[in-house]
Write a protein that binds this DNA or RNA. Structure first.
Lengths: 231, 231
DNA sequence: AGCATAAATAATAA
DNA sequence: TTATTATTTATGCT
């Protein structure tokens, strides 16, 4: 599996998925990829026909199918993902974007969908659950939109905060502060926030992320110049 | 003091505090507990009226009154605590939660306040300091919020210690020690700290946190299988 | 379509 | 109990 060849390992390649006739039409781990692909495509169309977002589906699913599927309370957006996809261990061995990208490039959430790397096995596992849920949703829809709304979901639950966009001026000042002190005190942060007219919390998070970025930069630098001093 | 009776030593008991009419209304070590209790209650109300957190008060105090009160640089949250309370040697002989729990159960930080085990003596000692500080703060507040902010903020005072990041190797060794003994002696901790080249204090705190984590784990396990074996 | 990074969450040091 | 770091998630922009 550590082979350097990109086409011989168990990880999927574009070729396998799309145009390799030698591997029994994309059979991996005993899963019929073509079937999964078709299902995903159909599912998406059905979902969009109902005017639902992936998020809505994910939320509704975790409610309907029980928390066993939701895996964690991390983020509602991960719910669908945790159905469809193995989060970490499966970074390799995933159905690449080449699959989903072909689904419906023009439709609502192409970028989102494209990112949902899916392992054949988990796809297989979740398929019947999704099928069942979607059938029910469609039935509700036919019985009236009110009915569907009820089924979907009640609460919109917590929304993620809108990503704030710092002005270049603000960034300049933030960076200046950061260069002087990467760990401003609460007092300082309050002052900065007031001066820049941003939420204190937003400023706090900015510093967190900035420290993280710095750390990553350092780490990367170290990797590239191991022992020998190359500037 | 090694008596098995919990009511006859100099340590306080609930009875002494709340309902023992024989000891002159809660007189201990020459300290009028009732008075302390009243003061603490009033102090909290005054603090909340100014919209201040305990943390803010603690910070401001350590700045105003000097580091002599802060006792250690460990954690700024302990500043107030180190005023009010003796940290270690006074595990016995404290005003139990039964006192503070009665203060203001419904208010902002009941849980925290409830935990602040206080010795009568140190309470007596710190009382005038708190009284003076609070009077000043209130005066400032009357003179305008800006004024109070200035008073509170003053200097950032001592900063929280930077979170140390243990190396995997160090963690391995720490965990090995922990498995053998969850309560290493001071001597042992000093040795461990030297061996790993970390501050002794850092090692000490690691063991505290580790024990806490273990405790939580056990608690959680017990919740899920309450005595009776149900599979 | 992918990057940069803001936001959210989990783990754990103080 | 609080605060900071580690990690993950997702979104605004190009």
């Amino acid at each position: 599996s550590a082979s350097s060849s990109s086409s011989s390992s168990s990880a999927l390649s574009v070729g396998q998925l799309v145009s390799n006739p030698q591997t029994a039409a994309g059979e991996v781990d005993g899963v019929n990829l073509e079937e999964i692909r078709e299902f995903a495509k159909a599912f998406k169309i059905r979902r969009l026909s109902l005017g639902l977002t992936q998020t809505q589906v994910g939320q509704a699913l975790s409610a309907t199918e029980g928390p066993a599927y939701s895996q964690s309370a991390i983020c509602r957006h991960t719910i669908l993902r945790s159905h469809f996809f193995l989060p970490q261990e499966a970074q390799e061995n995933t159905i690449a974007s080449s699959l989903t990208a072909k689904l419906n490039p023009g439709l609502l959430y192409p970028a989102r969908f494209e990112k949902l790397d899916i392992t054949p096995k988990s796809a297989q596992k979740i398929k019947p659950v999704l099928e069942r849920w979607m059938a029910e949703a469609e039935a509700r829809h036919r019985a009236g939109m009110q009915n569907l709304t009820e089924f979907i979901g009640s609460e919109p639950s917590k929304k993620r905060k809108r990503r704030t966009s710092f002005t270049p001026q603000a960034l300049e000042i933030l960076n200046a502060h950061f260069e002087k002190n990467t760990h401003p005190s609460g007092q300082e942060m309050t002052e900065i926030a007031e001066k820049l007219n941003y939420d204190r919390e937003v400023v706090r998070v900015w510093f967190c992320n900035k420290r993280q970025a710095l750390k990553n930069t350092i780490k990367r630098l170290k990797q590239h110049e191991p022992a020998t001093a190359v500037p």
